[in-house]
Measured scan of single mutants.
Amino acid sequence: QPDICKDYKETGFCGFGDSCKFLHD
C-alpha cells in the first residue's frame, strides 16, 4: 500500500502533481 502524500494531505497541493509516487487521497 502506497504512502499518503504528506504535502497533499496537509496543504491540498503537491508540486509533483499526478506523477507523485505517493497517494493523493
Rank of each mutant, 00 (worst) to 15 (best):
E10Q: 05
F16Q: 13
F22P: 03
L23H: 12
D25Q: 11
T11Y: 12
Q1D: 14
K6H: 13
Q1W: 01
P2H: 15
G17Q: 14
L23C: 09
L23A: 10
F16C: 04
G12T: 10
G15Y: 05
I4D: 08
D25K: 02
I4W: 01
C20P: 02
F16G: 13
C20T: 02
K21S: 04
D7K: 03
F13Y: 11
S19M: 15
F22Q: 06
G17D: 10
D18I: 03
Q1K: 04
P2R: 15
D3I: 04
G17C: 01
E10V: 02
C14K: 04
K21L: 04
F13T: 10
Q1L: 07
G12H: 07
Q1M: 08
F22R: 10
P2K: 15
F13H: 12
T11Q: 10
F16E: 14
G12E: 13
Y8E: 13
C14Y: 03
L23Y: 13
P2G: 15
C20V: 01
I4S: 07
E10G: 05
C5L: 00
K21A: 08
K9F: 11
D25N: 00
L23G: 11
T11L: 09
Y8Q: 12
D7Q: 14
F22G: 08
D25H: 02
F13D: 08
Q1P: 09
T11E: 12
C20H: 01
G15S: 11
K21C: 01
G15C: 07
I4A: 05
Q1R: 02
C14V: 01
E10A: 13
F22C: 05
S19T: 10
I4L: 11
Y8F: 13
T11G: 12
D7F: 03
C14P: 07
Y8I: 05
D18W: 00
F22I: 00
D18F: 00
C20G: 02
C14E: 07
Q1N: 15
Y8A: 12
D18A: 08
D3E: 05
K9C: 10
D3S: 09
D25C: 00
C14A: 06
K21N: 02
C14S: 04
D18R: 06
D3M: 15
D25A: 08
D3C: 05
G12F: 05
D25M: 13
T11H: 13
I4P: 03
D18G: 07
C5W: 02
K9M: 14
I4Y: 11
K21Q: 03
F22L: 06
F22K: 13
D3A: 04
D18Q: 03
G15R: 12
T11S: 11
K21R: 08
C14R: 04
T11W: 10
G12I: 06
D7R: 10
D25Y: 03
Y8S: 06
K21F: 01
Y8T: 05
C20S: 02
G17I: 01
T11R: 12
C5E: 03
L23S: 08
C5A: 00
I4T: 05
T11P: 06
I4K: 11
F13L: 09
D3R: 05
E10N: 10
F13E: 08
G17L: 02
S19F: 15
G15M: 15
D3P: 06
D3T: 07
D3W: 14
Q1C: 14
K6W: 08
P2S: 14
P2N: 14
D18E: 12
C20F: 01
S19P: 03
K6T: 07
G17M: 15
P2F: 14
G17Y: 07
D18K: 09
K9R: 09
K9D: 12
G15V: 01
H24F: 00
C14Q: 04
H24S: 01
L23T: 06
T11M: 15
H24T: 01
D18N: 12
G15A: 09
F16H: 14
G17N: 06
G12S: 11
C5D: 06
D18V: 03
Y8G: 10
C14W: 00
G12Q: 08
P2M: 15
G12M: 14
Y8N: 06
G15N: 14
Q1T: 13
F22W: 11
Q1H: 11
C14N: 04
K21P: 03
H24G: 02
C5G: 02
T11V: 10
K6Y: 08
D25V: 09
E10I: 06
D3G: 09
D7A: 13
C20L: 03
K9E: 12
K9P: 01
G15Q: 14
Y8D: 05
K6L: 08
C5T: 03
C14G: 03
G17R: 06
Q1F: 13
T11F: 12
H24L: 02
K21T: 06
C5N: 02
D25W: 00
F16N: 15
E10W: 01
G12A: 11
H24I: 00
G12V: 01
C20N: 00
S19N: 08
T11K: 14
C20R: 01
F16A: 14
D25E: 09
C5Q: 08
E10C: 06
E10F: 02
F16K: 12
D18T: 08
H24N: 06
D18Y: 01
C5P: 01
K9T: 11
G17P: 04
F16I: 00
K9Y: 08
C20Y: 04
D7H: 08
L23E: 06
K21V: 02
C20A: 02
F16Y: 14
S19Q: 11
I4Q: 00
